[in-house]
Design a protein around this nucleic acid. Structure first.
Length: 940
DNA sequence: GAGTCCTTCCC
DNA sequence: CGGGAAGGACT
């Protein structure tokens, strides 16, 4: 394509008559635009063309630029791209076409600017190693002729990375020799440049050096012949190779995920994932999740959720997974995850990631969930059958029930009797409870269902697989230990019944009961867990009573292998009545499961507000020595409030706050408090509730020094509504985080090659602006720094600088703060020694420039006359003008800016206004100064 | 003064 | 060759 473009450009300057001449015998009129291109590339027409250069072998895309100091020894040379495909070494080559005499083809190093017209010699050196171990600089020349088919091959070239300090000198050297050569064509004797030319050269070199991309170069090929004066005459336009990029540069560097802390997420998304990455720019990186079909076509994609505040330096990103496209998947789905750089579209190698079905919280297996309504559904009874595994088991239960003598719990009367024995389980309360308990009814239902449905009914799939897996995996001798939920429950009830029948002494009974509640299934669960799982309300009542009366209340908190207590399971299965029942019998709500979650955490994770209400209801704790703790952190470091905010559950947030949860508690992973989490979730309602109805501290910062406002400015591109809420709650937009400001990080990492000239210029301006900002910061002296901690880091204002809407909101706070600052510390007006103003009474900006009266006056005058724009110019705040123009009072914003950001004195402003001939304004300031002198004098 | 970037050095 | 890192320079 290079040859094509140069070819076309060489033609494009010619008018049509020449063009038809160029095309030889073909009459111009017969050539339409469609076949013009084809004609030009037709070999038969080509040899009638003007000479041109054609790149035959492009150089490799990436090559290591070495510093001079690295150049001892050999380091390989620039090969051609084709070398990557075939094994033989090939080198960048060009062919001179349409030329029939020997010629010189030259290769030198140029910038890789996207527009060829703007390419200039590059400051790096293109060298070829010579015999004496000396390096010869470009240009490199090769003679072409018929002998080599007019092909120039450039081998053995390397690129020396010119050190920063030498860039300008190196450029001047190159430009000088080129200019001399050019001038010699007209004036053979010329040996040096005049002063004007030299200084122009230096100026150009300095300009170019500033914007030169040091990590991308291009080879420039030119063709010459020697004229009678031995001067080089150009044969045709130069052509350029495709860019060669510096392999070692961090800026064009490879995107890479080095490590990830988890590679599975539920399909609901929202899970926090940490990745370590090779250097990225926080403003120029995305995390892409995508799925491909069998044909490797992308069928779904979404992006990890994070803000620039979640990019740790340039090497780690903490993000939340996006939800998968289908939230009801039954099986895990494999997807991929990769880094994506928007500016150049570059991607890292994808790594595997898996979405798993959204599970019943805390459960890895699916179990049939039983609610009271379908308590005795045939499905569940069938499950029981299967659990028993054998007909034998079925028979056992069936016979138990039919045979009234050695029964489970037998019938009502015998049960009542049993309970009346002097076993320590006797009490009127318990008797009453048992009288209300229809065990026989409960059992007969069992009987009925068993007899009725028997083994005929289809079994629930999950139950079957679950059991089979167990049986296959477990050795036969422990088979009898494998108990399903129902089986376990049955066994426990049976044994309880037996114990109660046996009329033993109370301590033996206690021992036996303890044994019963130490029976575990394969999940490490007791009959209590099983009772919850099965939704057996009556059985639960019985068991809890037995435990209580037997004095083994602690067993109510027995944990399964995931450290879940029956209470955990009650909330996981969204059974508020069990929660209440368990709490009433003394269950401890503060046990944590293996993820460190209390029942409160879990119920919020499950979004079950009824259970939460029960957990937090004081009435449930009347006889319970354990009170719920609302500020406990799980192993993710979250308090229940954090979870509630993540789940965007306003009800839970409110309930927790009312129950004494601390709204200012930080999580232990990032130091986020609830407000910040709510902001991260863009949950306006929770934010509003927190700022308006709780004692939340809006200016709390996380470990990184970010406040909620920082987040509000950047999450999802910034949320104006939430910013407004925070600002109204007195959030401080000038509070800086702990980030170090580094210019390099603010520059786009890699510029797309397609970038237009205009864009380049614009970004240059932006760069300039940053420098200005920084300079201001540098001049904002240490006093400022110590007083406000403002000097370093990034403020919300900084983060919002690309979002006009939010910027305007933050500016309101500026106004507010300016006025409070003033009211609070008007009498502490500082006088600065180093202040350049001759006036002793120049006030320092951070105490407010003007009193209210004066400010109002100034604003009305300057807004009316529009002189505020001129003042902005004089104060060097020209860049502010467009953003504050639309404000009700631009002057006020200007003064606020000057007050908080600049080191402008009242005297400066006064003098500028005088220069602008704003007499009324000057007068107002003078009046104010006079008042201040009077006040100060009075005080002393 | 720490965090980055640049350059040199080394294997 | 290509990767890594030390150490100085630069914000």
């Amino acid at each position: 394509m290079n040859s094509a473009s140069s070819f076309e450009s060489s033609n494009s300057s010619q008018d049509s008559s020449q063009e038809s001449a160029t095309l030889g015998t073909i009459p111009y009129s017969t050539i339409n635009t469609m076949n013009l291109r084809a004609l030009l590339f037709d070999p038969s027409t080509m040899n009638r063309e003007e000479p041109f250069l054609k790149v035959i072998e492009e150089p490799v895309e990436k090559f290591r630029f070495r510093y001079k100091s690295e150049m001892m020894g050999t380091h390989g040379s620039i090969l051609a791209r084709s070398h990557e495909r075939n094994r033989r070494k090939t080198y960048p080559s060009v062919q001179l076409c349409n030329y029939d005499r020997p010629a010189i083809v030259r290769c030198s190093l140029y910038t890789a600017h996207p527009h060829e017209k703007q390419r200039t010699p590059h400051t790096h050196r293109l060298i070829v190693r010579a015999e004496n171990n000396m390096d010869k600089d470009d240009p490199h020349e090769v003679i072409v002729s018929q002998d080599n088919n007019y092909i120039a091959v450039f081998h053995g070239m390397g690129i020396i990375h010119t050190a920063k300090k030498n860039i300008v000198e190196e450029l001047i050297k190159k430009k000088r020799s080129r200019l001399l050569e050019k001038l010699r064509v007209k004036n053979v004797k010329l040996t040096s440049l005049n002063t004007v030319q030299e200084s122009k050269l230096r100026q150009d070199a300095e300009d170019e050096s500033r914007k030169m991309n040091l990590n991308s170069v291009s080879l420039c090929f030119e063709a010459f012949y020697r004229d009678a004066n031995n001067c080089l005459q150009q044969i045709c336009d130069p052509v350029f190779s495709k860019p060669i990029n510096n392999m070692k540069s961090a800026l064009t560097g490879e995107l890479k995920i080095c490590r990830i802390d988890k590679h599975v997420s539920t399909c609901m998304g929202g899970e926090e994932v940490f990745i370590l990455v090779e250097k990225v720019g926080k403003k120029n990186i995305k995390i892409k999740f995508f799925e491909v079909n069998e044909d490797d076509q992308e069928i779904w994609c979404d992006y990890g959720k994070f803000s620039e505040l979640d990019v740790h330096h340039q090497y780690a990103i903490v993000f939340r997974t996006p939800p998968y496209r289908d939230l009801d998947i039954e099986k895990p789905v494999d997807v991929f995850l990769q880094l994506y750089r928007p500016t150049d579209g570059d991607c890292s190698e994808p790594i595997k990631f898996q979405y798993k079905p959204s599970e019943k919280m805390g459960r890895t297996r699916k179990r049939p969930r039983v609610s009271n309504e379908n308590l005795h559904s045939s499905e569940n009874i069938n499950f029981l059958n299967v659990t028993n595994g054998t007909t034998n088991g079925m028979m056992e239960i069936g016979s138990d029930v039919k045979n009234g003598n050695d029964n489970l719990l037998g019938e009502h009367t015998s049960l009542s009797e049993l309970l009346n024995e002097e076993n320590g389980l006797d009490s009127s309360e318990f008797r009453e409870f048992m009288n209300n308990l229809s065990i026989s009814e409960y059992m007969s239902t069992f009987d009925h269902d068993l007899a009725f449905d028997g083994e005929k009914s289809p079994l629930p799939k999950d139950a079957v697989t679950e059991i089979r897996i167990k049986e296959e995996n477990d050795p036969p001798e422990v088979k009898e230990e494998i108990l399903g939920d129902y089986e376990l429950l049955q066994k426990a009830l049976k044994q309880i019944n037996m114990v109660l029948q046996e009329k033993l002494s109370s301590d033996v009974t206690a021992k036996k009961i303890e044994n019963i509640f130490n029976m575990r299934n394969t999940e490490g669960e007791t009959a209590l867990h099983a009772g919850v799982m099965c939704g057996e309300k009556d059985a639960m009542k019985l068991m809890l009573q037995v435990l209580e009366k037997g004095g083994q209340k602690h067993l109510i908190n027995t944990q399964n292998f995931r450290n879940e207590t029956p209470l955990h399971l009650a909330v996981l299965h969204k059974q508020p009545q069990f929660v209440q029942m368990l709490l009433a019998k003394g269950a401890d709500p503060n046990f944590t499961n293996s993820d460190g979650n209390t029942a409160i955490h879990l119920t919020i994770k499950c979004c079950h507000n009824e259970c939460l209400t029960e957990l937090l209801d004081k009435n449930n704790y009347v006889h319970n020595e354990h009170k719920p703790k609302c500020n406990e952190k799980n192993y993710e470091g979250q308090t229940p409030l954090h979870v509630a905010a993540v789940k965007r559950n306003l009800f839970a947030v409110k309930s927790l706050v009312k129950s004494g949860a601390n709204v200012n508690e930080a999580d232990s992973t990032l130091g986020r408090h609830v407000l910040m989490v709510a902001v991260e979730q863009s949950d306006k309602d929770i934010v509003e509730y927190l700022v308006k109805e709780t004692n939340v501290d809006v200016n709390l910062e996380n470990y990184a020094g970010d406040t909620s406002l920082h987040y509000a400015c950047v999450v999802n591109g910034g949320n104006a509504e939430i910013c407004q809420l925070l600002i109204d709650a007195k959030a401080d937009p000038m509070k800086a985080n702990h980030e170090q400001r580094s210019r390099a990080m603010e520059l786009p990492l890699a510029k797309p090659l397609e970038v237009t000239v205009k864009e380049e210029i614009e970004s240059e301006d932006e760069f300039q602006l940053h420098i200005d900002d920084d300079d201001e910061d540098d001049e904002d002296d240490e006093d400022d720094e110590e007083e406000n901690g403002l000097s370093k880091g990034c403020t919300s204002m900084d983060l919002a600088k690309d979002n006009q809407e939010i910027l305007n909101i933050l500016k309101q706070a500026d106004q507010y703060m300016a006025s409070t600052l003033q009211n609070e510390s008007l009498d502490e007006v500082q006088i600065k020694d180093e202040c350049p103003s001759p006036s002793e009474h120049s006030t320092v900006v951070d105490n407010g420039l003007f009193d209210e009266q004066t400010l109002t006056k100034l604003c009305s005058v300057l807004d009316a006359s529009n002189s505020w724009t001129n003042l902005a110019d004089l104060l060097d705040y020209t860049f502010l003008v467009p953003s504050i123009r639309a404000a009700i009072s631009p002057s006020k914003l200007l003064f606020n800016y000057a007050d908080l950001h600049g080191n402008v004195t009242v005297q400066h402003i006064r003098n500028f206004l005088e220069a602008l001939d704003e007499k009324e304004a000057v007068e107002a300031i003078d009046l104010m100064l006079a008042r201040q002198v009077a006040n100060t004098g009075g005080d002393q």
